[in-house]
Design a protein around this nucleic acid. Structure first.
Length: 270
DNA sequence: AAAACTACCTGAGTGC
DNA sequence: TGCACTCAGGTAGTTT
């Protein structure tokens, strides 16, 4: 489910409920996530949440003692609810806040993660070798060209590589390549610099406008209050194989790249 | 070094 | 209705 816009939407949604609050209780109902949820996560209990931030698709819930590192995997979401509301089957982690509200982590496929660190989370092995944020100055045509230079692998797989740029998953990779007019299967090393520049701009534009719409809800993703994201109706190619391209009216094609479904317009994208 | 592939897991949808 | 099957938004880790 969640690519960067969904994680950012979640981050902005839960932050006002969390920052300044004391964690009154922490319950792990199912510890078998991508990695076993560490018992030390309990250390968050009794501490005040000082900040909630996003790095790549990770959420960082910071306290003075340490930081919970949260990943939503493929099917995870965070909701803020009244604790009296009935728990659902896949509500795996619960955070009781001194406001009386409860943060619930729901993740049917359990590809997500809850980890704990008492040192700088940016130095954690999962975070420290990540590439630049798409909205940061250090993601630009120079670094993208460097990552593409001499590479045979497709441009789509390249922009989905978190060492190149973080946060671009399958949906937005397809969308950004359509906006930039680049065929997803083209070898990264064979995309000209001006077109890479267009791609940098397209990645920023598609992510930003999805964040404005509250992300894309395909099946699982819901915001912290349970409402869906509305970007789905603006998808240009993703999930539209057989339907007509909104720009040129030729049919949208579907292929497989790196074992992922890939959608594109063969007329608009070269 | 880079590319290709595997593994983790549940649920929705499809075809018979 | 039920069964077997395919597919799904991520990504660390292993193999080629």
């Amino acid at each position: 489910m969640p690519e960067l816009p969904e994680v950012e939407t979640t981050c902005r949604g839960v932050r006002p409920h969390l920052v300044g609050r004391i964690v009154a209780g922490l319950t792990v109902r199912e510890a078998r996530l991508r990695w076993p949820v560490p018992a030390a996560l309990k250390c968050l209990e009794g501490h005040r949440i000082e900040a909630v931030e996003r790095r790549a698709k990770y959420l960082l819930i910071r306290s003075q003692l340490g930081t919970a590192i949260v990943h939503l995997g493929m099917s995870g979401n965070l909701r803020v609810s009244e604790p009296t509301l009935e728990l659902r089957k896949h509500d795996h982690v619960l955070l009781d806040l001194d406001s009386g509200l409860q943060l619930r982590y729901h993740d049917p496929r359990r590809f997500g993660a809850w980890l704990w660190t008492e040192t700088d989370p940016y130095e954690h092995s999962l975070l420290k070798s990540l590439g630049p944020e798409p909205f940061g100055e250090d993601f630009n045509v120079d670094c993208l060209q460097q990552a593409c230079k001499g590479r045979q692998r497709s441009i789509k797989e390249t922009i989905m590589d978190a060492k190149v740029v973080v946060g671009v998953g399958n949906i937005y990779a397809c969308e950004a390549l359509f906006m930039a007019g680049i065929h997803p299967g083209r070898a990264a090393g064979k995309v000209s610099r001006p077109r890479l520049k267009r791609l940098v701009d397209a990645i920023r534009e598609v992510l930003a406008s999805s964040i404005e719409q509250g992300g894309t809800t395909l099946r699982d993703f819901l915001r912290e209050d349970g409402s869906p994201g509305y970007f789905r109706q603006q998808l240009r190619v993703y999930g539209r194989s057989g339907e007509v391209c909104r720009r040129c009216e030729s049919p949208v094609k579907q292929i497989t790249l790196g074992q992922r479904s890939t959608f594109y317009c063969e007329r608009c994208q070269r």
